[in-house]
Amino acid sequence: MLDDRARMEAAKKEKVEQILAEFQLQEEDLKKVMRRMQKEMDRGLRLETHEEASVKMLPTYVRSTPEGSEVGDFLSLDLGGTNFRVMLVKVGEGEEGQWSVKTKHQMYSIPEDAMTGTAEMLFDYISECISDFLDKHQMKHKKLPLGFTFSFPVRHEDIDKGILLNWTKGFKASGAEGNNVVGLLRDAIKRRGDFEMDVVAMVNDTVATMISCYYEDHQCEVGMIVGTGCNACYMEEMQNVELVEGDEGRMCVNTEWGAFGDSGELDEFLLEYDRLVDESSANPGQQLYEKLIGGKYMGELVRLVLLRLVDENLLFHGEASEQLRTRGAFETRFVSQVESDTGDRKQIYNILSTLGLRPSTTDCDIVRRACESVSTRAAHMCSAGLAGVINRMRESRSEDVMRITVGVDGSVYKLHPSFKERFHASVRRLTPSCEITFIESEEGSGRGAALVSAVACKKACMLGQ
């Protein structure tokens, strides 16, 4: 009897593995994704193909990295998701002549009506938060230079001027797309009239992360975010950046690689679950690469896999709870928690219980395998993109072996128990001629924006502006 049951459990697990095998990517698959990513990057950089390229390769006008001589107080704003952060950054000489960066910050959550109302409502709310922060720190009387981390696709015309191309991540505030974001912020500050600010720089969160990590390690020339969304930036040779005049030196390019796949480059790798996630998203047909990796989508992918296993009578005796059938019910943090389970399955059992399920031991094991399959594919897909960037940098610099540091931020990278190990191992397999160091950014977005502002202020002083 026991043997029969054991055989049935083994057969069930084997069927589960057959279904989950769809998520496995072979090294040849990853090399294919990497080569296609490089081709799209090239198209994004070139003037004649930029418009139709899915990977936009947006110039950021960040050319210099901090040298350690900029000092002063800077205000930093960070808008990239449902939370908005205001930070005071003091850049100065530390002990023994070292450079020191001290920060104080406060988080504000953005109400739904500000995210989806008008641009005026959104930026009025942001300036209200700045006003509140300055009151708390008794700094209303000071006109501070301000660095703005704005983590949406922007076409820069200068370091302090950028046109919002399109909202992502659930934002829909009308009247912002096609307009200068810094102008919208300046107008809102003017409307309030109770404080003055000098907006000197606007950067993407990947750029802010790279600059913040450069402060720790001067070989950091790539910034990457794996959180709600997924994106990367890197220092490109100016001669390859056709959208900006000049051939000397390097400029940081914001790849906006989340949109890779929007022209069909990933079609052969998309599964039924991916198509369902895409169809029910706020932007169907867009940001397809990001939807395979980002935390906004990972939990939902797992939920759809679990429903398939229920329908195949391989999980929960073929019956799903009402909660499990509800879109968004299986949160991405559950994926991390399930994979963090120590082996007694308590954590998995508790999560499934909150979803109205009474799982068996085998159910718990199957749910864990589903989570591992989805998150491992995410790590491997992400590795193909980064390997594409790094191999490109090595080739354009004609280096036999390139040493490089990548600064990384984002909740999936930082909080998932195995993502970074799987990701690092896969990147290294795909970049055999590179020695890569990964560092995690601390308060990256805010500190990085302030350091970019410090560079901009120093330049302005040198130019006598």
Results as ranks from 00 to 15, higher is better:
Thr326Val: 14
Glu48Asn: 08
Val226Arg: 00
Asn231Gln: 10
Leu306Trp: 01
Glu265Ile: 05
Asp160Gln: 07
Gly80Val: 08
Val207Thr: 10
Tyr413Lys: 01
Ala456Phe: 09
Glu93Asp: 13
Arg325Gly: 12
Asp124Gln: 06
Leu47Glu: 13
Arg5Thr: 14
Glu339Gln: 03
Ile390Trp: 01
Ala259Phe: 15
Met235Trp: 11
Arg429Phe: 14
Glu290Thr: 08
Ser353Trp: 05
Ile110Thr: 03
Ala21Arg: 08
Met298Arg: 02
Asn254Phe: 12
Met41Val: 05
Gln323Trp: 04
Ser398Lys: 14
Phe260Met: 14
Glu421Gly: 13
Ser127Leu: 04
Ala173Trp: 12
Thr65Glu: 13
Cys252Ile: 13
Ser127Thr: 07
Ala176Asn: 10
Asn391Leu: 10
Thr354Arg: 05
Glu256Val: 04
Gly410Ser: 03
Lys420Asn: 10
Glu265Lys: 04
Asn83Met: 12
Ser281Leu: 02
Ala11Trp: 10
Gln38Ala: 08
Cys233Asn: 00
Arg85Val: 14
Thr206Ile: 04
Lys420Leu: 07
Asp409Asn: 14
Ala329Pro: 04
Gly162Met: 04
Ile19Glu: 08
Tyr273Leu: 05
His141Ala: 10
Tyr234Ile: 00
Gln138Ala: 06
Asp400Trp: 11
Val335Met: 11
Glu22Lys: 09
Arg63Thr: 10
Cys129Thr: 06
Val427Met: 09
Val154Trp: 11
Phe152Pro: 13
Val338Leu: 04
Ile126Gln: 01
Leu20Ala: 00
Ile163His: 14
Thr361Glu: 09
Asp132Glu: 06
Glu300Tyr: 00
Gly285Ile: 03
Lys31Asn: 03
Glu245Ser: 12
Val277Pro: 01
Leu58Gly: 07
Asp73Arg: 03
Glu128Cys: 06
Leu122Pro: 03
Leu77Cys: 15
Asn166Lys: 14
Asp124Tyr: 01
Ile293Asp: 01
Asp73Lys: 01
Ile436Phe: 06
Leu75Pro: 02
Leu185Tyr: 08
Gly227Thr: 02
Tyr297Asn: 05
Gly92Pro: 02
Ala384Asn: 01
Thr405Asp: 06
Phe419His: 00
Leu270Ser: 12
His317Gln: 12
Ala176His: 10
Ser263Asn: 11
Val305Pro: 01
Glu421Ser: 08
Cys230Leu: 09
Arg303Leu: 00
Gln323Ala: 09
Glu242Cys: 06
Ala10Asn: 13
Lys32Ile: 11
Arg429Lys: 14
Lys102Cys: 07
Asp344Lys: 04
Ile110Phe: 08
Gly183Pro: 11
Ala449Lys: 04
Cys457Pro: 10
Gly223Asn: 01
Ala387Pro: 00
Leu2Val: 14
Ser174Met: 13
Val412Leu: 12
Ala460Asn: 12
Leu25His: 04
Glu279Gln: 13
Phe316Gln: 05
His380Asp: 12
Pro417Phe: 04
Val253Asn: 02
Arg422His: 05
Gly318Asn: 12
Met238Lys: 03
Leu88Thr: 04
Ser398Pro: 04
Leu77Ser: 05
Gly328Tyr: 09
Val55Lys: 00
Ile351Leu: 11
Ser69Leu: 12
Glu322His: 04
Phe152Lys: 15
Ala10Glu: 15
His380Ser: 10
Lys346Cys: 08
Ile351Asn: 04
Asp205Trp: 05
Ala173Thr: 14
Thr82His: 04
Gly92Ser: 10
Glu290Phe: 05
Arg308Ile: 03
Ile293Gly: 06
Thr103Phe: 08
Ser383Asn: 00
Leu45Asp: 00
Leu45Cys: 05
Glu242Thr: 02
Thr116Ile: 03
Tyr234Gly: 02
Gly343Cys: 05
Tyr108Glu: 02
Glu95His: 06
Met8Ile: 06
Phe334Asn: 01
Leu271Pro: 00
Ile404Gly: 00
Ala425Trp: 03
Lys459Tyr: 11
Cys457Lys: 12
Ser212Cys: 15
Lys142Gly: 07
Pro432Val: 07
Gly410Val: 07
Asp341Leu: 05
Gln18Thr: 07
His156Ala: 07
Ile110Met: 12
Lys458Tyr: 07
Val71Lys: 04
Gly446Asn: 13
Ser445Met: 14
Glu442Trp: 10
Asp3Met: 03
Met210Trp: 01
Glu236Met: 02
Leu451Glu: 05
Thr437Cys: 14
Leu430Ile: 08
Glu22Met: 04
Phe330Val: 09
Cys129Ile: 05
Lys31Tyr: 03
Glu216Ser: 11
Asp132Gly: 14
Cys220Asn: 02
Phe148Ala: 13
Lys143Glu: 08
Ala282Leu: 05
Ile404Arg: 00
Met139His: 10
Met462Asp: 15
Met298His: 07
Leu357Trp: 10
Asp262Trp: 08
Ser445Val: 15
Tyr349Arg: 06
His105Tyr: 12
Leu352Gly: 02
Ser411Lys: 04
Trp257Gln: 02
Ser69Lys: 07
Glu290Ser: 06
Arg345Glu: 10
Arg447Thr: 13
Asp365Lys: 04
Leu306Cys: 12
Ile436Gly: 01
Asn179Lys: 13
Tyr214Val: 07
Phe23Ala: 05
Ala384Phe: 05
Phe84Arg: 04
His218Phe: 04
Ala378Gln: 13
Glu221Asn: 12
Val408His: 01
Met139Leu: 15
Asp187Leu: 06
Arg192Ala: 11
Gly299Lys: 01
Asp29Leu: 05
Phe150Asn: 10
Asn350Phe: 02
Phe334Gly: 03
Arg428Val: 14
Gln337Pro: 03
Phe423Ile: 15
Glu216Gln: 05
Val86Asp: 03
Val412Tyr: 06
Asn254Pro: 01
Val452Phe: 13
Arg392Phe: 05
Ser64Tyr: 06
Leu266Arg: 00
Ser280Phe: 09
Asp42Ala: 10
Arg46Phe: 05
Val241Arg: 00
Gln337Gly: 09
Lys90Asp: 06
Gln337Met: 06
Gly388Pro: 01
Ser76Gly: 11
Thr209Ser: 04
Ser373Thr: 11
Gly318Arg: 06
Ala454Cys: 12
Leu79Arg: 06
Arg43Asp: 05
Glu322Arg: 10
Asn179Gln: 13
Thr354Lys: 13
Tyr215Leu: 08
Cys213Trp: 01
Gly388Met: 03
Val222Met: 07
Leu357Val: 08
Tyr273Phe: 10
Gly407Glu: 01
Gln239Phe: 08
Glu28Gln: 05
Val401Pro: 09
Glu265Gln: 00
Asn166Asp: 14
Phe438Lys: 03
Lys90Phe: 08
Asp29Thr: 03
Pro145Ala: 04
Val455Ile: 13
Tyr273Cys: 05
Tyr289Gly: 09
Thr116Lys: 14
Gly249Ile: 04
Lys136Pro: 00
Leu25Thr: 04
Thr431Ala: 15
Leu357Gly: 03
Glu319His: 15
Tyr297Lys: 12
